[in-house]
Write a protein that binds this DNA or RNA. Structure first.
Ligand SMILES: [Zn+2]
Ligand SMILES: [Zn+2]
Ligand SMILES: [Zn+2]
Ligand SMILES: [Zn+2]
Lengths: 149, 149
DNA sequence: ATAAACCTTGGAGTTTAATCCAAGGTCAAG
DNA sequence: CTTGACCTTGGATTAAACTCCAAGGTTTAT
């Protein structure tokens, strides 16, 4: 049996986080002492580890709530349900990666187009691209060939 | 000159968003009518387009505020300053992509390990992995070979 | 002259995942 | 029997970027 601070220390979260999880229905201690202290069992600790592992994979707390409700009633759910959640999350992650790759490509083009020198940004091709269009990225600084064919 | 709704429609944002940008110092209309209506000039519209392009690249509004302050005082800044911001953002984006790739890899392993069939999730390898460790991903369903060497 | 479509303001709500605070109660050591 | 470390509660705050609302004023067209 662990007090809140012990369990928190063990799992490298803050006690506040455990209270937060309790308030949001993810993890309640199995007991309280007579004086009201939360006492977590080993089973509670395992539940917390489940939560933290699911977070590592990118599930939100509300998705984890769903996962937990499956987990403690496994026989009423099919593999398909569980795998569906994983695949949905995978699709979300992939979509976000794709969007970030668009950002990345544009940022790389902007970076390449600017000489990054100490001269005035008056003709900085990054600013000019943002002013007019992200598709035209060329450095106009005299003597600077960045971004030019 | 555009009324707020016109400019919003033109740039495919909501009028509320323009009021929000004004409250946060990103974009104020150059004039008001006698009755208090916001009137945006073509220059204001260009500033909005600048903001929206910067958002497309993944800058936050507070970064865009900084970018705008450079943009309207270009001569006091160097190319290095501007490129520095782009490169910082690029590094952030790359870091986030790397984290998401970790999620993705683990999710793929989880997905591969589960048969996704209609049978009970009692022995679902996804749940088991979350219960014990993300590194052990194997399907224990009788007859199911997913995730097994 | 009246209805529809637009605009104004201030303020509250949304989402996510905590984090922090104040005022007070509990427990073990010395 | 008093410190100090720990615990309790409820409620406020954070960041980000909107989004919505109510109550009322303005414009424009019919
Ligand atoms: Zn240059
Ligand atoms: Zn430059
Ligand atoms: Zn299976
Ligand atoms: Zn399964």
């Amino acid at each position: 049996m662990y007090r809140i601070g012990e369990l928190a220390g063990m799992c490298e979260v803050k006690a506040d986080t455990l209270r937060f999880y309790e308030k949001h229905g993810l993890l309640a201690p199995s007991m309280r002492t007579d004086s009201g202290y939360r006492m977590y069992t080993e089973q509670d600790a395992n539940r917390l580890r489940f939560i933290l592992r699911a977070k590592e994979v990118g599930f939100t707390l509300s998705e984890i709530t769903e996962l937990l409700s499956i987990e403690l009633n496994k026989s009423e759910w099919a593999c398909a349900d569980v795998k569906g959640m994983v695949d949905d999350k995978l699709a979300q992650v992939e979509e976000r990666i794709a969007q970030l790759n668009v950002f990345k490509t544009t940022l790389q083009a902007l970076s390449r187009a600017c000489c990054g020198g100490p001269e005035s940004a008056e003709h900085c091709s990054i600013l000019e691209a943002l002013e007019s269009s992200l598709t035209e990225v060329r450095c106009e600084e005299p003597g600077c060939e960045h971004g030019k064919q």
